[in-house]
Design a protein around this nucleic acid. Structure first.
Length: 429
RNA sequence: GGCGGGGUACUCAAGCGGUCAACGAGGGCAGACUGUAAAUCUGCUGGCUACGCCUUCCAAGGUUCGAAUCCUUGCCCCGCCA
């Protein structure tokens, strides 16, 4: 049996390495260990009710594990989220209440369900919440059973702790204890699910090794850790922020259009790396796209493929369809042939204003822009029009006298205002 | 507690009695160019019933025909000495 599996299973470490998803592993033996199916887990912090594209890196790694025949567990940190992981944070985190965390855990589960197969016959994925086991501990029990196995010296040595102790913000006992909880998670999953590997972002290294040590001390078992490199954008910033806002996987927080566009705007020198990380495209396909980048950069084939693949994975076929038709309308010159309902879907997340029909029909474009709140004042609207930056239904407003006619109101319901290239505002009549 | 410097638009920062809705830079917005990149160039950046009018330069008073500019008081910053 082992032999058979050996031949049909691709070595997951090789796969991940070839896609740039491995920063470091705790023990080189892991290369051989994964030739048999193992159980692997990664934790997700419920700081919001949706994962962000940054989390997607870890999710993709988990998905690769599952595709290679391993059993994967996604751990939602319902309990640890209440404590706050100090790793990579310069300030003490504001504690979330339990109610909020439950909401967040639910949202995260929803996100994960798109990537992991929970129905798989041989190795269905599992979602667990560490609140389920950590919540049962009394403080005394925890200190006796878990705390006893930790040395303060090595806890103090962790990067996440050291950085904070040296900063002005300092660190509370609560956050200091965080690594014990995450370490205990590993022990619990080792016992309950025979989980022998934890993966996570490189900032999780200290927490992962703490878990490995704990399993070794308490059970004498050998476990492993694998860290994934932090993805940065071309300006060296943490990946996944767009104009200061995080890009979320949940459509209500980041529209499918914005999500799609985030990937479309990937810089040339970054797109190959992202294709490897965020899609399941073969390396051959990616090499082809890389070639097209050199021969026909203006086609942006690689960016388009990246955006399509990721949007499809996260938002499904319908999400991708909406994102693409939104892109057509928002970048295309004409909106002809689209009815008000199509437009409402396309502009679902665009700010909109409801006005009475007598405020719209017969009004000048200038007045409408102000009434809708697109421009703060008439002066601003006037300047916008004079510089040719205001559009009604994707047609430039030629002069200050332009009046909104009945024809401009699509299906007697909608007028689409736009300032500049992509700043849209919907007027509902 | 003593001495000195200062508070101007989103930010920095000129202005020191009229020519000030307030120089300049950054940022932001728009236009041209372009590959939804980067760079570059141009315009705009208090409000309005708009070649004019109104409200602004920490706050409140005062001097003056006229103040962001001078005086008084208050509030707040920042240096230096105790």
């Amino acid at each position: 049996m082992g032999c058979l599996l050996f031949f049909i299973m691709e070595n997951i470490i090789t796969v991940l390495t070839s896609r740039g998803l491995v920063e470091d592993i705790t023990n080189p033996n892991l290369n051989d260990v994964v030739n048999e199916p193992i159980t692997v887990y990664a934790g997700f912090d419920p700081t919001a009710d949706s994962l962000q594209v940054g989390n997607l890196v870890t999710v993709m790694a988990l998905a690769h594990f599952q595709r290679c025949g391993h059993k994967v567990i996604a751990l939602a940190g319902g309990a640890t989220g209440m404590i706050g992981d100090p790793s990579g944070k310069s300030d003490e985190r504001v504690l979330l209440d339990q109610e909020q965390i439950e909401v967040n855990v639910t949202g995260i589960k929803e996100n994960l369900s798109r990537f992991l197969d929970f129905e798989n016959e041989t190795a269905p994925a599992l979602i667990v919440n560490n609140y389920d086991w950590l919540q049962k501990f009394s403080f005394i029990d925890f200190l006796r059973d878990v705390g006893k196995s930790f040395r303060v010296g090595s806890m103090l040595g962790k990067e996440s702790v050291r950085a904070r102790l040296e900063s002005d913000a300092g660190m509370s006992f609560t956050e200091f204890s965080y690594q014990l909880l995450q370490a205990y998670d590993f022990l619990h999953l080792y016992d309950a699910e025979k989980c022998v590997l934890q993966i996570g972002g490189s900032d999780q290294w200290g927490n992962i090794t703490a878990g490995i040590d704990l399993v070794h001390k308490r059970r004498g078992g050998q476990t492993y850790g694998l860290s994934i490199p932090l993805v940065l954008d071309s300006s060296g910033q943490k990946f996944g922020k767009s104009a200061g806002n995080a890009v979320f996987l949940t459509a209500s927080k980041t529209s499918v259009y914005d999500f799609y566009q985030f990937f479309i705007r990937t810089a040339d020198d970054k797109v190959v790396e992202l294709l490897k990380i965020f899609t399941f495209l073969s390396l051959d396909d990616i090499a082809e796209l890389e070639q097209s980048l050199k021969t026909a950069p203006e086609q942006r084939a690689a960016q388009k493929k990246l955006a399509e693949e990721v949007t499809l994975l996260v938002h499904g076929e319908n999400g991708l369809r909406i994102a693409k038709s939104a892109t057509d309308v928002l970048f295309g010159k004409s909106m002809e042939g689209l009815c008000a309902e199509d437009l409402l879907e396309v502009f679902a997340d665009v700010t909109s204003t409801e006005l009475q029909s007598e405020e719209v029909e017969g009004a000048t474009a200038l007045d409408l822009a102000v009434a809708a709140g697109l421009c703060k004042s008439k002066g601003q609207a006037r300047r916008l029009i004079e510089s040719g930056g205001l559009y009604v239904n994707n047609n430039r407003v030629p002069n200050l006298e332009r009046v909104i006619e009945a024809d401009d109101i699509i299906d007697s319901k909608l007028v689409v205002l736009r300032s500049g290239k992509r700043n849209f505002h919907l007027v509902k009549v």
